[in-house]
Design a protein around this nucleic acid. Structure first.
Lengths: 347, 347
DNA sequence: TTGTATGCGTTATCAT
DNA sequence: ATGATAACGCATACAA
């Protein structure tokens, strides 16, 4: 536990020049060995390599990027890392961008506009080759920055008529209508919606829910919390619902986490699913199919959205800025019916 | 949907010089307005501010970092973003570092050493002010790089006798022994362990499990999968377990996700918890207390570990490199008993 | 195949 | 209070 090994640490990081000196060559040669080894003679290549290794040389990306005007970096802003939705999306981005030689810089806005704007500013400061942001509700300031960034900008997860640049997502409103119609078709008539309005997409779905209910002459029943979505929150919201409206026959949750928590709470209270209440979630996270009862959910193509986003970005970057024909790409959604909405046929 | 707004985009990003020109001042003044506004006259301050805003100026962090030798960046490597464990930890880091003016650069190693080494190299290229890495099993190459980095390095989540620099975590082995003893004390004697050995911490816990079982003259029963932990995997592992060993009376899962999936599978198969099988997880993720039955788990202080890590790093950075007295900090763990291990008293 | 000169956008230092 | 100048570490263009 002595401090010796620490006090002897180098104060100055080793640079190209240091390696060059040790190898007895010029700095450019070292740079070449790292970037274009085939252009350097075998002898020097090895000498430089060992020198670099001896000194534990790590290239300074900042200097490199500054000099080359190439950061090989993609900026990404998501509102949450806890929510499984964004993990799948990020996973896809990783899988396409890393092999292509790009690095992901991911910042978390925690569902607040101010944080998002700050995150965008921070990322732009790193001069990414492209920006990928979640949703379409950026602040005017953020929009301005993105428009001036001079790099491809992709808004993902939902759709808008007025994209900053490229827009890849799905219609949250259509998904909301579809979910509600699905429950109606299965004979549910007293339907409640549980949600957490921190998520802008969830708000769009709620609006679709309310609109659809009203248009059918029914009273929209929404239980919301300003906390972010989570399993415990689902249990809480269901408890609140049942106390106020014990007569509901279906619950649509704005996220699968809420649905899972609500399901637990039903179990705890002896409410049978789907016999007493039908249940439906959103996003189709992996646990939906494995829960008991399995949860009906609206599957969103998160992974595919990520792949598509990455491919389009790469095409633009490599193809000298050529945008795709369509600036607005609808990836759609799909309802996966499972036991939580399969009531036994009426006798 | 025209391309006009795109084709008119600036090809060159606006720089300090551009802003200076527009404001009719020198570049240095602009720089000062941004960093030390109090040293600049009111008039110029405003003129520069509007010029910067008009041009949508975003400072180039790379150039800034290069010139000042200060990146205000903390490098972090975690093996997974899907696993709730790391979210809580990252959350804590965010909460302490962001207000302190630092930015987090988080890379995901996806549970593989090669990725981790690459991630560490990448992060070091950004010249972070400190490095935080998960676990204590870095490759020799990674260790070397970290030792030469000249910045504080914190290894988190588990403990080692041979830390690179600072080590903050808990004894996974002790936690493993404790979990097993806990089940034994409650009368379980045919205990199985479900795990995903991709996680090095999980492997340590398994070793503790096996050792404890053998030392009691019992046969260690382990069902593992090389896939990363997930809810569906828990269901699969339980199915495999029951088919081979229908007589188990307790299951300890190496992660709460596995426990949740296993619990669903029990439900599906009509196995009662805890009457037929007692269940125990690890980490005490938020859904444990809300599940039905609620899941007994080993609570790990993830958030506190993050806070402690950040505080120590800040102290070192600000206190001219002074390390804390103890380079190895044990944050402990705690078993939270819930219904999944509360068998009814024998009559 | 290797080296020299120049510049990337910013900050630090020193003048004014 | 403001400006001129020299770094920072590397990559590009060009020369040898």
């Amino acid at each position: 536990m002595t401090d010796k090994d620490i006090s002897t640490r180098p104060r100055r990081r080793t640079t190209l020049g240091d390696v060059a000196q040790r190898a007895g060559v010029s700095a450019v040669t070292v740079s070449r060995v790292l970037r274009e080894p085939h252009l350097v003679s075998e002898t020097l290549r090895e000498r430089v390599a060992t020198a670099a290794s001896d000194l534990g040389y790590v290239p300074n990306r900042l200097a490199s990027a500054l000099a080359s005007a190439q950061t090989n970096t993609i900026g990404v802003v998501v509102p949450s890392l806890t929510n499984g939705v964004f993990n799948d999306f990020l996973s896809a981005l990783h899988n396409v961008f890393l092999p292509a030689g790009f690095q992901l810089l991911v910042l978390n806005s925690r569902y607040t506009d101010a944080n998002e704007e700050k995150a965008i500013a921070t990322l732009l400061g790193h001069h990414p080759e492209a920006m990928i942001v979640t949703g379409v509700d950026q602040t005017p300031g953020a929009r301005r920055m993105l428009q001036h960034a001079g790099v491809p900008v992709v808004q993902v997860m939902e759709l808008t008529d007025r994209p900053i640049d490229i827009n890849i997502g799905l219609s949250q409103v259509e998904a909301g209508h579809a979910a509600l119609r699905f429950l109606m078709e299965r004979g549910c008539c007293r339907i409640a919606h549980l949600m957490a309005p921190l998520d802008a997409r969830a708000v769009r779905r709620r609006e679709a829910f309310e609109q659809e209910m009203v248009s059918r002459g029914m009273e929209p029943l929404v239980i919301a919390s300003t906390r972010p979505t989570s399993v415990p929150l689902g249990a809480e919201l269901l408890a609140a619902l049942i106390e106020r409206h014990p007569d509901v026959d279906a619950v649509w949750c704005s996220s699968d986490n809420l649905a899972l928590g609500a399901l637990f709470e039903c179990d705890r209270r002896g409410i049978r699913v789907p016999e007493d209440i039908s249940f439906m979630g959103f996003n189709d996270l992996e646990f939906c199919s494995i829960a008991h009862p399995a949860i009906t959910s609206v599957a969103t193509p998160r992974y595919e959205m990520g792949e598509r986003t990455a491919e389009i970005v790469l095409e633009i970057i490599r193809g000298s800025g050529k945008r795709p024909e369509e600036r607005r790409i609808d990836m759609g959604f799909e309802i996966r019916e499972r036991d939580s909405t399969r009531k036994a046929p009426r006798p």
